[in-house]
């Protein structure tokens, strides 16, 4: 446990103090700010329209029209930017040969994989916290149901953890940071598309399986404000799967 935390702390510090992280965070902030303002304006316009037609803009609508939309943009941005954060985790260690230090230290490959994952997850969470400022700031001017928002963010946190794990696995496969970014983006997109591929399929077992592994289906539960154990188990297993793959790649270096 000591080694896991040691690696996680060191890598987290190196990531968040790097110019690249600042650039990614700045880019995310610009995109989210512009989009969030646009969602708020649309919501205000819809509210005005509803008032004129005699109805009221319910608090639930703020959730659907602004927060859910915001989460969708956050998700989209993270699919493409998180790989730039996770690319360094192992690929750079291999390139700079500091990997030798890790593999000749009295720590297991599981310690390395989990420590690196926690560092990536920490950096991703820092980005999520930036995105949380927008809905949190909205509470100053409007009332909404906080628990629903928290569940919404818990859902996106789980997906972000999955992206971080996929990015870590991609980083373990190469010593080229650019290739790691490319592979991680492909993995992230696959995570979304693999669940959609069975929709409407004549092969029943494939349709059922793809429904279960569809990230969209699981996320929709969170977007509705419901917390399902099956979804939490799904995301935790998927994260565990990628971290396990990464651990196997690290371990395999000893046997080549």
């Amino acid at each position: 446990m000591r080694a896991i935390l040691l690696i996680a702390r060191k890598d987290f510090k190196l990531i968040v103090t790097s110019p690249l992280f600042c650039f990614v965070a700045a880019l995310c902030t610009v995109v989210w700010s512009l989009m969030y303002l646009s969602f708020l304006r649309q919501f205000a316009a819809q509210g005005l329209m509803a008032n004129m037609q005699g109805g009221g803009a319910a608090a639930q609508s703020l959730m659907n029209s602004v927060f859910v939309q915001h989460i969708s943009v956050v998700n989209l941005v993270l699919i493409f930017t998180l790989p730039a954060i996770t690319m360094r985790l192992i690929a750079e260690e291999k390139k700079m040969r500091s990997y030798d230090l890790l593999l000749t230290s009295p720590i297991s490959s599981t310690d390395i994989a989990v420590g690196k994952f926690l560092a990536g997850l920490g950096a991703a969470t820092a980005l999520l916290l930036i995105s949380f400022i927008y809905p949190a700031g909205t509470s100053l001017i409007a009332k909404f149901h906080w628990p629903t928002l928290i569940i919404l963010y818990f859902g996106i946190f789980l997906i972000t953890a999955l992206y971080a794990a996929a990015g870590l696995f991609a980083s373990s496969l190469t010593d080229s940071a650019m290739l790691a970014v490319f592979m991680a983006v492909v993995f992230n997109l696959m995570i979304w598309f693999v669940g959609q591929s069975g929709a409407g399929s004549d092969v029943k077992w494939w349709a059922t399986l793809s429904e279960y592994i569809s990230v969209g289906n699981h996320l929709s539960n969170f977007l509705k404000g419901t917390l399902r154990v099956s979804s939490i188990v799904f995301f935790t297993s998927a994260v565990g799967f990628f971290v396990f793959l990464c651990q196997r790649v690290i371990e395999s270096a000893r046997w080549r």
Partner: peptide, 29 residues
Amino acid sequence: KRRIGYLPETPPLYGDMVVTDFLEFVAKL
């Protein structure tokens, strides 16, 4: 591994770290 100190051909260093922080990290590792 606890008993061995190893200096490979290319020194395993983290360029973004300060010397003492790096040595502290290695000692704990």
